[in-house]
Design a protein around this nucleic acid. Structure first.
Lengths: 243, 243
DNA sequence: AGCGCGTTTCGGCCCCGGCCGAAACGACTC
DNA sequence: GAGTCGTTTCGGCCGGGGCCGAAACGCGCT
């Protein structure tokens, strides 16, 4: 454990292909080496080498099953790090644009982007307009407060208990994952809820089939059950999916 | 403004020389190009090119005075980013050690390290054993709370007012710098106070000559005045400097 | 004007590392 | 056992980019 330099760590993320891998893995799921290779448009052999380096660097963990090599982010800390870097790169950073921008691309791509803008996962919590709406609703209802740094309120704790949504035992303790963390959504430019709370909400929503994954990306669809649950629990009136 | 890729941003930090520049600049002060070149052990011409790239990337800002080029971190967000990366690299990250560790080095170096371990600045707030001690004292006295994410308490606000320590007007507001942020100290492996509060405390301590810079690095010395002030205001009994 | 010095630009060197394709490997299928 | 397919290893190619030294550029000084 432990012990590489800032430059070594940054070098791991400094390659467009490896960065693409990490971006894809931000959906929190495990991908196979081949999927990532196709996703990034490189030969399988190339992908294999990149993965080995990312794993050796502690950013990814692997899990081998038969002839497949499943790979995922090594933990929430990695996801946070990559999120932070991405946000910084896309907002604060300099004029060394170079890239041709988002590149509108084909119709298939545009559809995917719009689905992700509506609702998606961001590592292990909810993002997109859905994520922002949930965060706003919880603020409005006083379940989380924003006085001096975001925090879960007493009302919020009872609400969670009433819904039988559990936080991990040590949440909020020294050195543990913070209960609530704001995460800047780069399509909405709005903050939504990360941290242990965000993860618990997302896990619950998937378990109770309030939302379902669409395809292989990180896009989500809200089910009729979910629509009802969100309206009852948080007073959320969601946009129609045609939007 | 805005708009580079994760990979481009990471590439800026992926070079040992540029990383060394950023590490040095974490003391929050402006350095000249030549100082940084000597610090990192490269030719002035090399340093010049690196600085131009870091500035173009929005990580640094420059200020030219006569024949000098002063350069500093572009803001707290950059400092936070570099801190986060450094912490991650030194703790969570993989076994690709390679480096021979901290490299004890000569006596001069050892002295500097021990001074920095005792008290130093971390961008714009206090770190080292002093920073950890201040954070602990404020927690003990209920000036900040750690229930669900760190926050400044009501008592804390009155205490600040009584000491005439001002926070920036919009602190804690949407999108603004958080009031209190924990920052992991990599020598102590303990958290200390960053954010607007940490910055205000550090600024005050320097203005009122409670601490003074030692040499050109980020090490600090607590003055007799500071010793008294910290004992009276926070009940801190500081270690002797001989430690 | 003339000098010193911090900084910048340019040319040239060289190595690191990303890319691919060919071939080997190993697991699953028939 | 033969075939398929996901993955890995290896060799070779090539471009990017970090490094330096030489020379130019400015700024301040005398």
């Amino acid at each position: 454990m432990g012990g590489m330099s800032l430059a070594q760590l940054a070098a791991l993320l400094a390659d467009p292909t490896r960065a693409a891998f990490c971006g894809a893995l931000l959906d929190g799921r495990a991908w196979t080496a081949g999927e990532l290779a196709r996703h990034a448009g490189v030969a399988p052999s190339t992908a294999s080498e990149h993965l080995s380096r990312l794993i050796a660097g502690g950013l990814l963990t692997e899990e081998r099953q038969g002839r497949h090599r499943y790979v995922r982010l090594a933990g929430p800390a990695v996801a946070t790090l990559i999120e932070d870097l991405t946000v910084f790169a896309e907002t604060a950073a300099g004029d060394a644009a170079g890239g041709s921008g988002p590149a509108p691309g084909n119709l298939r791509e545009a559809t995917r982007r719009s689905a992700e803008a509506r609702a998606r996962t961001c590592y292990d919590h909810l993002a997109g307009r859905l994520g922002v709406a949930v965060a706003d609703a919880m603020l409005d209802r006083g379940l989380v407060s924003d006085d001096a740094g975001l925090a879960l309120t007493g009302d919020g704790r009872s609400w969670l208990a009433a819904q039988a949504i559990d936080l991990p035992p040590r949440a909020g303790g020294k050195g543990a994952r913070p209960v609530v963390r704001t995460c800047l959504d780069w399509t909405e430019r709005r903050t939504h809820l990360g941290g242990a709370l965000g993860a618990a909400l997302c896990r619950t929503a998937l378990e109770r089939a309030w939302v379902r994954r669409i395809g292989s990306g990180r896009a989500l669809r809200v089910t009729p059950d979910g629509d009802r649950a969100l309206r009852e629990l948080l007073g959320l009136q969601l946009e129609s999916e045609a939007a």
